[in-house]
Nucleic acid binder design. Sequence first.
DNA 1: AGTATTTCCTGATTTAGGTCAAGCCCCTTC
DNA 2: GAAGGGGCTTGACCTAAATCAGGAAATACT
Lengths: 197, 197
Amino acid sequence: MEQVFNVLFEHIADKVPITERDKEVVMSFFRRKKLRKRQYLLQEGDVCKYISFVTEGLMRSYTVDEKGNEHINLFAWEGWWISDFAGFIFGNEAKLNIDAIEDTTVLLLSVENYEKMLTEVPLMERYFRVLYQNSLATKDSRLISAITHTAEEKYTMFLDTYPSIGQRLPQNLIASYLGLSPETISRIKKKITETNT
Amino acid sequence: MEQVFNVLFEHIADKVPITERDKEVVMSFFRRKKLRKRQYLLQEGDVCKYISFVTEGLMRSYTVDEKGNEHINLFAWEGWWISDFAGFIFGNEAKLNIDAIEDTTVLLLSVENYEKMLTEVPLMERYFRVLYQNSLATKDSRLISAITHTAEEKYTMFLDTYPSIGQRLPQNLIASYLGLSPETISRIKKKITETNT
DNA sequence: AGTATTTCCTGATTTAGGTCAAGCCCCTTC
DNA sequence: GAAGGGGCTTGACCTAAATCAGGAAATACT
């Protein structure tokens, strides 16, 4: 079995008991793709044909508002799915841009293969149900956090929640993810280190 | 078939082709419950044993922060599911409160029945996958909106998205849902009516 | 009908965080 | 090793929305 699929199958096995037989079938639906740092996987206005599973590297999805500001929607590193969901599901134009923050390898799953896979391998139906279910619970708390917490709380909570990824991200991207300005993050960092001494 | 189930089955049929036979089985897993206005379905700290489908009325889920402010997470009226998802799925203490804004009838589905139903009726596995998938897409756009838009944009977008429900909600609840103060909503309304004359 | 409780409005003041601007440091890349 | 471009910091200033406070409408309760 190809090396890159290990990450995917570990992720699946974590949620449902997948057999070697199923793995073979599942594999056949995916296509592998490599991306250089800064390379687009999807641009606003395109039709989003795939959902992608990151096996190596780091990606982001983001929107651009009228003033030209980028707002990061999601980071996806090893073991995460990324896509313009609304576009993928409902078939409309993508509102999101997706690009690589580091050199990245992804496994692409097209709409047709997604549907096919779900019917042919019922276990995968269950896998995605569980996956979505969990992300819903996560999204809920992010939303609450975005509405209720202060800038400082958002920042420290982000670092607590994703300690490993903090290192890999320039702080202006974290700012964009949290809906804060880079300057604010900078000031918060200063304040925190000052308090700790 | 009991009347209250109509709303549920319409909702299901909208996503997957459910048979009369399946309906019988599905029905058996639910329990019906009536709630008076202001009555709790779940309080913070309880174990969330159910997800609930609203067949009539209007409910909300909300958190309370350290300062005692309520932040509404979700409104659920006819045809919506409501629950403390994280709690229901992972079995930990509820962080959300859920109560009735109007007199409400819900159909309760316990964790055990949920799991049982999903295995016994594979079609329901698919239904929930599609349901979650769609809510994910919706949540995404609400999150982006919470981060990027101004108070006025959030308010008008809310009314555009849920025109029917605007009437049924006092505006302090809308404010709480949008993460704004009631005063701000009041001023926005004033501004809008002034502009329109 | 009359009281109580929400709900809503409006003004004055405060504040968190954004915006603008300038300079520095650290990588790349010729 | 110079030149350029990100990324980060810091200061001065600004603004959207929160908070505080008071009263007016509107609902609900007996």
